[in-house]
Write a protein that binds this DNA or RNA. Structure first.
Lengths: 224, 224, 224, 224
DNA sequence: GATGAATGAGTGTTCATTCAT
DNA sequence: CATGAATGAACACTCATTCAT
């Protein structure tokens, strides 16, 4: 899994709400904490992708992140926090992508949607395994944190809905229910990480992506 | 979750894995073993849906299935086997549905596809939680067993592909790539169990289902 | 520490209230649980006396009690429970002694008090180290359990108070405040286990006991 | 707990243990070390009284004493040293009290004993919780240090013995065995911190003290 | 076949202590 | 002298699995 490092500086911007761990930690230097949290998230995500959250032991997480056990626990309170950190890091990228890509500056609805699809598919290819992880392990997340994740996710869908509404207003898109369509589109875009094992037997990634794009435009341009 | 019991007789067809649960102990009555395996799968699935596989303990599985610990281990070898049994039971229903519904007896492609969609959505609604479980926990399955599961899954997709090809031959469906379309359709049909938390805020199940049906027909009837 | 086994059959009589652990345990055979709890208490008490509660590890407790770790945890929920079991076992002996010794059948107050003192000193000598343990580690006990322990302890003191009142009524004892006197007497009787390191430099146990007896009679027979 | 600061100057007399806290680091200013040791003892004692020695972490000790972790370890070598410092500080007050109170300047044995009792009870009331701590946690002390503590304690008892002998010589006290009596007296005087939970249900502190005084005089004035 | 007590490797977590800055 | 991040041995506890009855 390549990590899209060009996104990193922006990652934790909107997420003062994700403070780890909930209660005070040992370490006092706040900048350091942020740095280490990122280090944990990056290392642990790779491990979780490989072994799954439950089968990864704290000792393995330490090795994967380059921490000693005690030191790791200076930055988290429980193992669950590690998963939260992983989600915090990647789900931010995941759900706040469009704002960061300048998609909303594009006027032409067709071009805007095409951009939104392509950029998303690029990101999805980069984060393939993380996306699978985010699907399979999100139900492990603490209730409160899961709520935030879902909120982010629906925020992402709203972004697509906005693009669709823009196209509808300009009489380019023919769909009647942009909310449902946005859900379908966002869902469809993840087909490759989730069900790719079958598609990949016949197509390479870019063939899949091209077809997805066509399907989505088809969906958006034809009367329902 | 209602379990569609009319499917049960066919369920355990192809799984050598469970034929001799314990090397040393010869359980003669094979019919009994099958009965007990079903009992385990039914009880355990409910538990796994509630708690997840990893957080469910063997003791809880015993309680949920009505076995004592020692007795349960007469029918399985490891905890993983329980998950396999659950998959074995439900994934058979899941992937061999269409054959059992008489869908292939229908001549008219439109009618056939409509039937295939509706029957599937019905089943998906019944098995909502199991489907989520099958997505999230399939990666826990032993390698060999996972292969069987995926084979079943692709068999299901092939069924849809066959329906599409039938419609293409009869000049009803306009699609060029029935393999890809089948994958997309099967994937789309599961949107509710997997991403329903967002859709359900606006629609009830049947509204979702109606929209899905329309989308799929749209997809199939329009030139790509 | 010799364990006064002749008391054992009576030990758990009055203490249905002490159920370990608070919530259900794995083991179903209740008689077995009682037997094992006793085994735990006897083994652990020796260890705690030697090392103290906090320095004793669960593995040492296992070795001292003859359990494997997992099996020990079939009978307790936490390490604290082991201490509670120890207290439960010995504090019962400790605080319900007099009823079991026939002291209350004696009519003559002098004889009754003498008996109460001697029997107690005998017990105290047997339980020397346990008494020290009960003093030093009682503050570790869970709040609720400590309350029961203190109630038992005050019940013991009440027994002495009753003996004193009997002597006052029969004009043998001259004391005005039997409650305070009973507290002092019970406290004094434990001087050897608690502060014996100094006394033992000059006296043997029976010399200490003889002197204590004299002091208490002095206290009880003279006008305040 | 008020700390009787007027005793402090004499406190750290006889404890080579803390003269060079760290082999490698030569802290030149010995006066500073003494000051810091006192700071540690005062802060830590409050914490130990509240949580017990074992449950108090070094981090909590730091917070309670106003040190940073690294700095604290400039003045001690192990956590046990903190307990030793606490004992060193308070046990000195505890066992060298009488010399500092001018008790030995009093000629009249009755007056002298009364003074010795009252001053002691005053101190005991001030140090209530510390006394309980000194009882419960003394067995944690390193062997060598415990010996010093016990020596101090027996020194205290000797002081009372001296007072008693003085009274015997002057034909005021009737006791035959001043050593035993001194042990009993010193032990009795601590009844309130150790067993007060029962007494305090009926009496306030001064009522307890008055009764104790009477009992001790009774003990000392009557033929055994 | 059924029972449930026993096993012990392995887990997440704590915390006294060290040491670079 | 002071700081606090880093270390890792040790801990309490869990739970899949076995096996005597």
């Amino acid at each position: 899994m390549r990590i899209p490092t060009h996104h990193m500086p922006k990652m934790q911007r909107n997420h003062a709400k994700f403070e780890f761990p909930k209660n005070g930690i040992q370490i006092k230097n706040l900048e350091l904490v942020r740095k280490k949290h990122l280090q944990i998230a990056l290392g642990a995500s790779k491990l979780f992708v490989k072994k799954g959250y439950h089968k990864a032991t704290m000792r393995e997480i330490c090795k994967a992140t380059g921490f000693t056990i005690g030191n790791l626990y200076d930055y988290i309170k429980t193992k669950d926090d590690v998963l939260c950190l992983v989600f915090d890091t990647f789900h931010s990228i995941w759900s706040h992508q469009l704002e960061n890509e300048g998609v909303f500056d594009i006027e032409d609805p067709m071009e805007q949607l095409r951009m939104a699809i392509r950029k998303r598919l690029e990101l999805i290819n980069q984060l393939r395994d993380m996306i699978l992880l985010m699907y399979t392990d999100s139900k492990i997340l603490p209730r409160e944190f899961l709520k935030t994740v879902l909120k982010n996710e629906s925020y992402l869908i709203e972004n697509y809905e906005r693009i669709l509404r823009n196209g509808i207003e300009k009489n380019v898109f023919k769909i009647k229910d942009p909310f449902f369509a946005a859900n379908v589109i966002v869902y469809l875009l993840s087909i490759e990480p989730l069900r790719g094992w079958n598609l990949r037997r016949k197509y390479n990634i870019s063939q899949i992506n091209r077809r997805l794009e066509k399907y989505i435009f088809n969906l958006v341009l034809n009367r329902e």
